[in-house]
Amino acid sequence: MTGKYDKVAYYPGCALEGTGHAYNRSTKALGDALGLQTVELENWNCCGAMEVKNVDPKIQTYLSARNLTIAEDMGFDTVMAPCNGCYHNLKKAEYDLAHDPESKSVNERLAGKAGHRAYEPGHVETIHALDWIKQGIGEEGLKAKVKNSLKGLKVANYYGCMYTRPRHIFPEKDRGPGSESTLKPHFMDDLLEAAGAENVEYPLKTSCCGGAHTLSDSDTSTRLVLNLLETAEACGADVIATECPTCHSGLEMHQMRAEKVFGKKTSVRILYFTQLLGLALGLSPRKVGVHENFSDAMPMLKQKGLAR
């Protein structure tokens, strides 16, 4: 353990209170099992997500920045966001406030109207749940706590798009050894390997799933997801590990839709990396919210000796 992220502000975001609740549950359970403390932001608001950013990105910057102000006011210099969308938006707000005077001015004006202090860039570091475990615990620390190795489980790691794009808002990535790569991300691979899993070579780990158009152009999304699923199966994966509630829901929902609309059935299961790590630490499937996933992973987990 590095002690770096022993206690962080926790920003779950809206999805983790809805369709991504299993991710919320498993992230908290994993933190408890690893001795990492999370303190949820008080009175947090939406990061601006897709909807506000589509209407006015500067309002999205303000909404994300307000959460950073809350973290700072609570005495934290680090906020952990497990959702790729939230993580991306908080990082984008940090970048825009540091580089775009108009964004800074709008943020100050809206913060003034709302009656709170405006966030100044550089005061709070936004990290993803992957950074939290990888840099707070590390592979060796994780190995030491594994009670139920993921040995025999073949995993395709899917990072989605917003964890690495656009590259300029992630200045800490692509810094050589030890840092995350935007071309071939590996933090999730590293952690799951430390827990005993066998990572398969998955060539589509950051490829588009059409998530943003899942309702407006469902067929495109379904076809993209189907190719992600079929490729994972062709790579020999039992499971696709995810680290974003939007990716996760998209993969699960379009897996069902692909069968219904295109008659294409795939059997690869979809689990959050926090669920897999939790199982490796000896937590029960219920404790990490496997029952909350749409896709039923229990038969596969039982077969692999990871559930009873």
Partner: peptide, 17 residues
């Protein structure tokens, strides 16, 4: 997909409205 819906990838990968 992008030829059908030009916005594919806009809000996420380009971070554009």
């Amino acid at each position: 997909g992008k030829l059908e819906v030009a916005g594919l990838g806009e809000f996420c990968c380009a971070s554009r409205p």
